[in-house]
Protein backbone atom coordinates (compact mmCIF):
# COMPACT_ATOMS: atom_id res chain seq x y z
CA UNK A 1 0.00 0.00 0.00
CA UNK A 2 1.41 3.39 -0.89
CA UNK A 3 1.09 5.95 1.81
CA UNK A 4 -0.94 9.03 0.89
CA UNK A 5 1.24 10.99 3.25
CA UNK A 6 4.12 12.95 1.75
CA UNK A 7 5.93 13.35 5.04
CA UNK A 8 5.52 11.32 8.18
CA UNK A 9 7.24 12.23 11.39
CA UNK A 10 6.95 9.61 14.13
CA UNK A 11 7.93 10.16 17.77
CA UNK A 12 10.71 12.57 16.84
CA UNK A 13 13.05 13.47 19.67
CA UNK A 14 15.82 16.05 19.26
CA UNK A 15 18.44 16.35 21.96
CA UNK A 16 21.19 18.82 22.68
CA UNK A 17 23.89 17.33 24.83
CA UNK A 18 25.40 20.12 26.93
CA UNK A 19 27.83 20.17 29.80
CA UNK A 20 25.00 20.47 32.26
CA UNK A 21 22.96 17.57 31.02
CA UNK A 22 20.97 16.86 27.91
CA UNK A 23 18.34 19.34 26.74
CA UNK A 24 15.38 17.90 24.91
CA UNK A 25 14.36 20.48 22.31
CA UNK A 26 11.79 18.31 20.54
CA UNK A 27 10.09 15.56 22.48
CA UNK A 28 8.00 12.79 20.97
CA UNK A 29 6.58 14.82 18.11
CA UNK A 30 4.49 13.06 15.47
CA UNK A 31 2.96 14.80 12.48
CA UNK A 32 2.02 14.16 8.87
CA UNK A 33 1.91 16.37 5.83
CA UNK A 34 -0.07 15.30 2.77
CA UNK A 35 1.03 16.23 -0.75
CA UNK A 36 0.12 19.84 -1.50
CA UNK A 37 -1.00 20.50 2.05
CA UNK A 38 0.02 23.50 4.14
CA UNK A 39 0.74 22.60 7.74
CA UNK A 40 1.18 25.52 10.07
CA UNK A 41 3.36 25.07 13.14
CA UNK A 42 2.89 27.67 15.86
CA UNK A 43 4.33 28.14 19.28
CA UNK A 44 6.37 30.48 21.43
CA UNK A 45 10.09 30.98 20.96
CA UNK A 46 11.88 27.83 22.05
CA UNK A 47 8.83 25.62 21.66
CA UNK A 48 10.77 23.44 19.20
CA UNK A 49 9.09 24.51 15.96
CA UNK A 50 12.27 25.48 14.13
CA UNK A 51 14.09 22.47 15.55
CA UNK A 52 11.44 20.17 14.11
CA UNK A 53 11.91 21.82 10.72
CA UNK A 54 15.70 21.60 10.93
CA UNK A 55 15.48 17.93 11.90
CA UNK A 56 13.27 17.14 8.89
CA UNK A 57 15.66 18.76 6.44
CA UNK A 58 18.63 17.21 8.21
CA UNK A 59 20.30 20.46 9.19
CA UNK A 60 20.31 20.38 12.98
CA UNK A 61 23.24 22.38 14.23
CA UNK A 62 25.69 20.23 16.15
CA UNK A 63 25.68 19.14 18.90
CA UNK A 64 21.91 18.83 18.30
CA UNK A 65 20.89 15.40 17.08
CA UNK A 66 17.90 13.21 16.43
CA UNK A 67 17.83 10.90 19.43
CA UNK A 68 14.73 8.87 18.62
CA UNK A 69 11.87 8.54 16.18
CA UNK A 70 11.83 8.47 12.42
CA UNK A 71 11.10 10.73 9.49
CA UNK A 72 9.73 9.32 6.26
CA UNK A 73 9.42 11.07 2.93
CA UNK A 74 7.01 9.22 0.63
CA UNK A 75 7.50 6.15 2.77
CA UNK A 76 11.31 6.28 2.55
CA UNK A 77 13.13 6.80 5.79
CA UNK A 78 15.32 9.90 5.55
CA UNK A 79 16.44 10.68 9.10
CA UNK A 80 19.33 8.19 9.04
CA UNK A 81 20.62 8.77 5.52
CA UNK A 82 24.33 9.42 4.96
CA UNK A 83 25.18 13.07 4.47
CA UNK A 84 25.54 12.96 0.72
CA UNK A 85 22.26 11.08 0.21
CA UNK A 86 20.44 13.62 2.36
CA UNK A 87 22.10 16.44 0.45
CA UNK A 88 20.49 15.17 -2.75
CA UNK A 89 17.10 15.29 -1.07
CA UNK A 90 17.62 18.82 0.19
CA UNK A 91 16.65 21.31 -2.48
CA UNK A 92 15.38 18.54 -4.80
CA UNK A 93 12.67 17.02 -2.56
CA UNK A 94 12.57 19.32 0.43
CA UNK A 95 13.25 23.01 0.03
CA UNK A 96 13.75 25.50 2.82
CA UNK A 97 13.14 29.18 3.42
CA UNK A 98 14.67 30.86 6.43
CA UNK A 99 13.68 33.77 8.55
CA UNK A 100 16.03 36.46 7.40
CA UNK A 101 16.17 37.10 3.66
CA UNK A 102 18.85 39.72 4.22
CA UNK A 103 21.36 37.11 5.32
CA UNK A 104 20.13 34.04 3.42
CA UNK A 105 21.83 35.00 0.16
CA UNK A 106 25.57 34.94 -0.34
CA UNK A 107 26.54 38.61 -0.80
CA UNK A 108 29.39 37.85 -3.18
CA UNK A 109 27.42 36.09 -5.91
CA UNK A 110 24.84 37.37 -8.37
CA UNK A 111 21.36 36.05 -7.60
CA UNK A 112 21.27 34.46 -11.05
CA UNK A 113 24.45 32.52 -10.36
CA UNK A 114 23.04 31.27 -7.08
CA UNK A 115 19.87 30.14 -8.85
CA UNK A 116 21.74 28.49 -11.71
CA UNK A 117 24.05 26.77 -9.27
CA UNK A 118 21.09 25.29 -7.42
CA UNK A 119 19.32 24.24 -10.62
CA UNK A 120 22.41 22.59 -12.08
CA UNK A 121 23.06 20.74 -8.84
CA UNK A 122 19.71 18.99 -9.03
CA UNK A 123 18.49 18.97 -12.60
CA UNK A 124 20.16 17.60 -15.75
CA UNK A 125 20.11 20.87 -17.69
CA UNK A 126 22.64 22.82 -19.70
CA UNK A 127 23.95 26.17 -18.52
CA UNK A 128 21.70 28.02 -20.98
CA UNK A 129 18.60 26.04 -20.04
CA UNK A 130 19.32 26.64 -16.37
CA UNK A 131 19.62 30.33 -17.05
CA UNK A 132 16.24 30.44 -18.82
CA UNK A 133 14.74 28.56 -15.92
CA UNK A 134 16.28 31.01 -13.45
CA UNK A 135 14.74 33.95 -15.31
CA UNK A 136 11.39 32.21 -15.36
CA UNK A 137 11.59 31.50 -11.62
CA UNK A 138 12.32 35.14 -10.88
CA UNK A 139 9.35 36.16 -13.03
CA UNK A 140 7.22 33.62 -11.16
CA UNK A 141 8.03 35.16 -7.81
CA UNK A 142 7.11 38.58 -9.14
CA UNK A 143 10.43 40.25 -9.72
CA UNK A 144 10.06 42.85 -12.47
CA UNK A 145 12.46 42.79 -15.45
CA UNK A 146 13.82 39.47 -14.29
CA UNK A 147 16.20 38.96 -17.21
CA UNK A 148 18.04 42.07 -16.09
CA UNK A 149 17.79 41.56 -12.34
CA UNK A 150 19.35 38.13 -12.68
CA UNK A 151 22.72 39.85 -13.00
CA UNK A 152 22.31 41.85 -9.82
CA UNK A 153 23.85 41.15 -6.45
CA UNK A 154 21.72 40.50 -3.35
CA UNK A 155 22.49 43.91 -1.83
CA UNK A 156 20.81 45.55 -4.82
CA UNK A 157 17.46 44.06 -3.79
CA UNK A 158 15.11 45.23 -1.03
CA UNK A 159 14.18 42.91 1.84
CA UNK A 160 10.89 41.81 0.32
CA UNK A 161 12.51 41.29 -3.09
CA UNK A 162 15.27 39.25 -1.50
CA UNK A 163 12.74 36.99 0.18
CA UNK A 164 11.16 36.50 -3.24
CA UNK A 165 14.58 35.47 -4.55
CA UNK A 166 14.91 33.08 -1.60
CA UNK A 167 11.54 31.56 -2.46
CA UNK A 168 12.64 31.21 -6.08
CA UNK A 169 15.77 29.44 -4.84
CA UNK A 170 13.74 27.11 -2.64
CA UNK A 171 11.48 26.25 -5.58
CA UNK A 172 14.32 26.00 -8.11
CA UNK A 173 14.31 22.21 -8.35
CA UNK A 174 10.55 21.73 -7.82
CA UNK A 175 10.70 20.17 -4.35
CA UNK A 176 7.61 18.39 -3.04
CA UNK A 177 7.84 20.02 0.36
CA UNK A 178 9.04 23.38 1.57
CA UNK A 179 9.99 24.06 5.16
CA UNK A 180 9.32 27.76 5.63
CA UNK A 181 10.82 28.83 8.93
CA UNK A 182 9.28 32.18 9.87
CA UNK A 183 9.46 33.40 6.28
CA UNK A 184 7.92 36.79 7.01
CA UNK A 185 9.10 37.63 10.52
CA UNK A 186 11.95 39.86 9.39
CA UNK A 187 9.81 41.75 6.87
CA UNK A 188 7.59 44.80 6.91
CA UNK A 189 3.95 44.09 7.74
CA UNK A 190 2.81 45.26 4.31
CA UNK A 191 5.37 43.04 2.61
CA UNK A 192 4.46 40.08 4.84
CA UNK A 193 1.03 39.72 3.28
CA UNK A 194 2.48 39.84 -0.23
CA UNK A 195 5.05 37.17 0.51
CA UNK A 196 2.50 34.87 2.15
CA UNK A 197 0.11 35.28 -0.77
CA UNK A 198 2.95 34.58 -3.17
CA UNK A 199 4.07 31.50 -1.29
CA UNK A 200 0.54 30.21 -1.16
CA UNK A 201 -0.08 30.79 -4.86
CA UNK A 202 3.19 29.19 -5.96
CA UNK A 203 2.70 26.14 -3.81
CA UNK A 204 -0.81 25.68 -5.15
CA UNK A 205 0.45 26.01 -8.73
CA UNK A 206 3.34 23.63 -8.23
CA UNK A 207 1.48 21.28 -5.88
CA UNK A 208 4.12 21.81 -3.23
CA UNK A 209 3.37 21.03 0.39
CA UNK A 210 4.52 23.54 3.00
CA UNK A 211 5.44 23.29 6.61
CA UNK A 212 4.96 26.86 7.71
CA UNK A 213 6.70 27.60 10.97
CA UNK A 214 5.61 30.86 12.54
CA UNK A 215 4.35 32.45 15.70
CA UNK A 216 1.83 34.51 13.82
CA UNK A 217 -1.63 32.94 14.18
CA UNK A 218 -2.99 35.35 11.60
CA UNK A 219 -0.68 33.97 8.94
CA UNK A 220 -1.66 30.42 9.90
CA UNK A 221 -5.38 31.16 9.80
CA UNK A 222 -5.05 32.60 6.32
CA UNK A 223 -2.69 30.09 4.83
CA UNK A 224 -2.68 26.73 6.53
CA UNK A 225 -4.90 23.70 5.98
CA UNK A 226 -3.95 22.19 9.29
CA UNK A 227 -2.11 23.54 12.27
CA UNK A 228 0.13 22.07 14.96
CA UNK A 229 0.45 24.00 18.21
CA UNK A 230 3.75 23.30 19.94
CA UNK A 231 4.62 23.88 23.57
CA UNK A 232 7.91 23.07 25.31
CA UNK A 233 9.07 20.70 22.60
CA UNK A 234 5.81 18.75 22.30
CA UNK A 235 2.69 19.04 20.23
CA UNK A 236 -0.14 20.43 22.35
CA UNK A 237 -2.78 20.25 19.68
CA UNK A 238 -2.90 19.40 16.00
CA UNK A 239 -5.87 19.51 13.66
CA UNK A 240 -7.65 21.28 10.81
CA UNK A 241 -7.08 24.99 11.10
CA UNK A 242 -10.76 25.96 11.49
CA UNK A 243 -11.28 23.43 14.27
CA UNK A 244 -8.22 24.53 16.18
CA UNK A 245 -9.14 28.19 15.88
CA UNK A 246 -12.89 27.93 16.52
CA UNK A 247 -13.01 24.92 18.86
CA UNK A 248 -9.66 24.60 20.60
CA UNK A 249 -9.41 21.78 23.13
CA UNK A 250 -6.07 22.27 24.84
CA UNK A 251 -6.09 25.03 27.47
CA UNK A 252 -2.89 26.41 25.91
CA UNK A 253 -4.54 26.71 22.51
CA UNK A 254 -7.61 28.28 24.14
CA UNK A 255 -5.30 30.82 25.76
CA UNK A 256 -3.52 31.50 22.48
CA UNK A 257 -6.78 32.12 20.62
CA UNK A 258 -7.94 34.47 23.34
CA UNK A 259 -4.77 36.47 22.91
CA UNK A 260 -5.49 37.27 19.25
CA UNK A 261 -7.21 40.60 18.59
CA UNK A 262 -10.23 40.22 16.29
CA UNK A 263 -12.14 42.69 14.16
CA UNK A 264 -15.56 41.13 14.67
CA UNK A 265 -16.19 41.76 18.34
CA UNK A 266 -14.70 44.26 20.68
CA UNK A 267 -12.96 43.13 23.83
CA UNK A 268 -11.66 45.42 26.54
CA UNK A 269 -8.59 43.37 27.26
CA UNK A 270 -7.06 40.47 25.41
CA UNK A 271 -6.65 37.46 27.63
CA UNK A 272 -3.15 36.51 28.48
CA UNK A 273 -1.58 33.29 29.62
CA UNK A 274 0.11 33.91 32.96
CA UNK A 275 3.72 32.94 33.36
CA UNK A 276 6.09 31.85 30.67
CA UNK A 277 7.14 28.66 28.98
CA UNK A 278 9.44 26.53 31.16
CA UNK A 279 13.08 26.42 30.22
CA UNK A 280 14.18 23.23 28.50
CA UNK A 281 16.19 22.15 31.51
CA UNK A 282 13.32 22.69 33.91
CA UNK A 283 10.29 21.09 32.31
CA UNK A 284 7.88 20.10 35.10
CA UNK A 285 6.77 16.54 35.71
CA UNK A 286 3.48 15.54 34.12
CA UNK A 287 2.04 17.98 31.59
CA UNK A 288 4.58 20.68 30.72
CA UNK A 289 1.81 23.29 30.74
CA UNK A 290 0.63 22.51 34.28
CA UNK A 291 2.14 25.54 36.08
CA UNK A 292 0.22 27.91 33.80
CA UNK A 293 -2.92 25.89 33.20
CA UNK A 294 -6.09 27.33 34.75
CA UNK A 295 -7.76 23.91 34.67
CA UNK A 296 -4.93 21.71 35.89
CA UNK A 297 -5.92 18.87 38.23
CA UNK A 298 -3.93 16.26 40.10
CA UNK A 299 -3.38 13.91 37.18
CA UNK A 300 -1.74 16.73 35.17
CA UNK A 301 1.04 16.87 37.78
CA UNK A 302 1.53 13.13 37.68
CA UNK A 303 1.33 11.81 34.12
CA UNK A 304 2.23 13.30 30.81
CA UNK A 305 -0.64 13.27 28.26
CA UNK A 306 -0.08 12.07 24.69
CA UNK A 307 -2.08 13.63 21.87
CA UNK A 308 -5.53 12.02 21.89
CA UNK A 309 -8.52 12.44 19.57
CA UNK A 310 -10.65 15.49 20.37
CA UNK A 311 -13.24 16.28 17.71
CA UNK A 312 -11.40 16.49 14.39
CA UNK A 313 -8.14 17.26 16.15
CA UNK A 314 -5.66 15.62 18.47
CA UNK A 315 -4.99 17.34 21.78
CA UNK A 316 -2.48 16.37 24.45
CA UNK A 317 -4.63 17.12 27.47
CA UNK A 318 -6.20 14.95 30.19
CA UNK A 319 -9.31 17.12 30.10
CA UNK A 320 -10.11 15.61 26.72
CA UNK A 321 -10.17 12.17 28.25
CA UNK A 322 -12.24 13.36 31.22
CA UNK A 323 -14.85 14.81 28.86
CA UNK A 324 -14.94 11.62 26.84
CA UNK A 325 -15.73 9.66 30.01
CA UNK A 326 -18.52 11.95 31.11
Amino acid sequence: MTSPKLLEVRNLRVEFPTRRGTLVAVDDVSLDIAAGEVLGVVGESGAGKSMTGAAIIGLLEPPGRIAAGEIRLEGRRIDNLPYNEMRKIRGRQIGAIFQDPLTSLNPLYKVGDQLIETILTHLPLTQAQARDRAVKLLEDVGIPSASERINHYPHQFSGGMRQRVVIALALAAEPKLIIADEPTTALDVSIQAQIITLLKRLCREHGTAVMLVTHDMGVIAETADRVAVMYAGRIAEIGPVQDVIKRPHHPYTIGLMGAIPTMTHKVERLTQIDGSMPRLNAIPKGCAFNPRCPKAFDRCYRDRPDPMPAGNSLAACWLVEEKAHV
Binding site: I57, L59, Y83, N84, R87, K88, I89, R90, G91, R92, G95, A96, F98, D100, T103, S104, L105, N106, P107, E117, T118, T121, H122, V166, L169, A170, A172, A173
Partner: peptide, 13 residues
Protein backbone atom coordinates in the same frame (compact mmCIF):
# COMPACT_ATOMS: atom_id res chain seq x y z
CA UNK B 1 22.63 32.04 7.33
CA UNK B 2 23.69 31.97 3.72
CA UNK B 3 25.86 28.93 4.35
CA UNK B 4 22.95 27.24 6.09
CA UNK B 5 20.74 28.20 3.18
CA UNK B 6 23.32 26.96 0.68
CA UNK B 7 23.24 23.60 2.45
CA UNK B 8 19.44 23.67 2.46
CA UNK B 9 19.58 24.12 -1.31
CA UNK B 10 21.35 20.78 -1.46
CA UNK B 11 24.63 22.10 -2.86
CA UNK B 12 27.61 19.79 -2.62
CA UNK B 13 29.99 20.20 0.28
Amino acid sequence: DYIKFARARGLTN
